[in-house]
Simulated assay, not measured.
Amino acid sequence: MGFELNQQALEGHDDRLRGALAGAGLPVDDLTDAGRSFYRFSRGGETVGFGGLELYGETVLLRSIVVLSDQQGFGFGHAITLSLLDQAHLLTETAASFFQSLGFRPITRDEAPAEILTTRQAASLCPASAALMVRSLPA
């Protein structure tokens, strides 16, 4: 990828973030809960997408990655995801193959840290059928 994205921290109540997530059918009910960090990603001053993390001690839940519809197909989802990663877990109903292409692997709920399973995302916002995935990057 021959581009760099700018990253700007956002509050969970940001209307652009909420609108993009809701428009993509992603959860917005818990965006202002403690431990969440959300970011706007732009290129050349133009917003291309949003991403977020939930922090639970040393465990991180990657969540709410969305690329605006007119910006899809250029590799922005890949760039946003990699910029947020160190070690992350995620839940997805529709994008498992996309995240597998980025090195995530499916895991069972028995393999997930308790901190992830007790999040609102895992416990109630995403259905039990959502794929739970993890990616660890080399140190």
Rank of each mutant, 00 (worst) to 15 (best):
D29K: 10
D30A: 06
L31D: 02
A34S: 14
A34H: 14
A34P: 14
G35V: 08
R36M: 11
S37G: 11
F38I: 00
Y39P: 06
Y39N: 04
R40V: 00
R40L: 12
S42E: 13
R43D: 06
R43C: 03
G44S: 11
G44V: 04
G45L: 13
E46D: 06
E46W: 01
T47L: 12
T47A: 14
F50L: 00
G51Y: 02
G52M: 07
G52V: 00
E54D: 12
E54K: 14
E54A: 13
E54L: 15
L55F: 12
Y56R: 11
E58G: 15
E58T: 11
T59F: 15
V60A: 15
V60R: 15
L61T: 03
L62V: 02
R63G: 01
R63W: 02
I65H: 07
I65R: 09
L68N: 04
S69R: 13
D70W: 13
D70E: 15
D70C: 14
G73M: 04
G73Y: 04
G75Q: 08
G75Y: 06
F76V: 00
F76S: 01
G77F: 03
G77K: 05
H78E: 12
H78N: 08
H78R: 13
H78W: 05
H78T: 04
H78G: 02
A79S: 11
L82D: 03
S83D: 14
S83I: 02
S83E: 13
L84P: 10
L85K: 04
D86C: 10
Q87C: 09
Q87D: 13
A88F: 06
H89K: 08
L90E: 04
L90Y: 02
L91I: 04
L91D: 06
T92S: 10
T94A: 15
T94N: 15
A95E: 12
A95I: 03
S97E: 13
S97K: 10
F98P: 07
F99P: 04
F99M: 07
Q100L: 11
S101C: 02
